[in-house]
């Protein structure tokens, strides 16, 4: 057990005097997660809102597909995206493999079903009196849709935070599509895996602590949205 205590002490030292490699891993994690979340929100929010709000042919099939993709194994996502962005793949000439944008594509694919399904769920769960109230106040269809989305803001905030938490702690996609290249695509999770395999617990625990702090911040945000959403 001594090595754990030593690792923790060294981790605290590392955290206080962040070295270049740790800083780079944190930056890569935040960048790729940021790209992925931006893409997932831009694509997923309108689709999720439409699924929860409107009625159209094929809606149930789309919802079923989105719900099924929630259980998509991350390794399979990594494999599929790899097949597309590898040098022999259809997007190979873009040179995305082993880059942050390449990783972000895989992470966006992971986050997308979460954003779509849970946004749809949030809109469906909204009190039906909300729409009726807006209509009785003379709102036009576009105004009703806009205000319905606004009324779901806390629930949607919760969706974003949940998807962010899922993406930032993911390791399989980051490893397969990023290649764990130091100072380039090495994220906190892939660094932890690497350092642990080398027996460098201090570095691993330091990065683990940073991840834990982020998870704590994410949970604080979740609690905030949950509290506001219940009102």
């Amino acid at each position: 057990m001594e090595y754990l205590a030593d690792g923790l002490a060294a981790a605290l030292h590392l955290l206080l005097h962040l070295d270049d490699a740790t800083r780079a891993a944190i930056a890569a994690t935040l960048l790729s997660t940021g790209y992925a979340m931006t893409a997932a929100m831009l694509l997923g929010l309108p689709v999720g809102f439409a699924l929860g709000y409107a009625s159209f042919p094929g809606k149930r099939a789309l919802r079923l597909l989105s719900d099924t993709l929630l259980a998509f194994p991350t390794v399979l996502i990594g494999l599929l995206v790899y097949a597309f962005i590898t040098y022999r793949g259809p997007l190979g000439e873009w040179g995305l493999l082993f880059t942050l944008p390449g990783m972000a594509i895989g992470q966006a694919v992971l986050a997308l079903p979460i954003v779509v399904s849970w946004t749809a769920q949030a809109v469906e769960s909204l009190d039906p009196r909300c729409r009726e109230t807006l209509l009785t106040l003379g709102a036009r269809p576009l105004q009703v849709a806009r205000l319905t989305l606004w009324e779901c803001r806390y629930a949607i905030g919760m969706v974003c935070v949940t998807a962010f938490g899922r993406v930032i702690t993911e390791v399989g996609i980051a490893m397969m599509l990023g290649g764990n290249i130091r100072y380039a695509t090495r994220t906190m999770t892939t660094a932890i895996a690497l350092e642990t395999s080398k027996g460098e617990f201090a570095q691993g625990i330091a990065l683990g602590l940073v991840l834990l702090l982020m998870a704590f911040a994410v949970n604080l945000l979740l609690a905030f949205f949950r509290r506001r959403g219940r009102a």
Partner: peptide, 30 residues
């Protein structure tokens, strides 16, 4: 007609905003 007719539901719903914003919501929609 919806711009002239309004209905108060039995268990009225207020939006997730202040009382002022709720009371003036219909006007702001116009």
């Amino acid at each position: 007609p919806r711009q002239e007719v309004t209905l108060l539901l039995q268990d009225a719903y207020l939006m997730r905003c202040s009382v002022f914003a709720n009371v003036t919501l219909g006007l702001r929609l116009r």
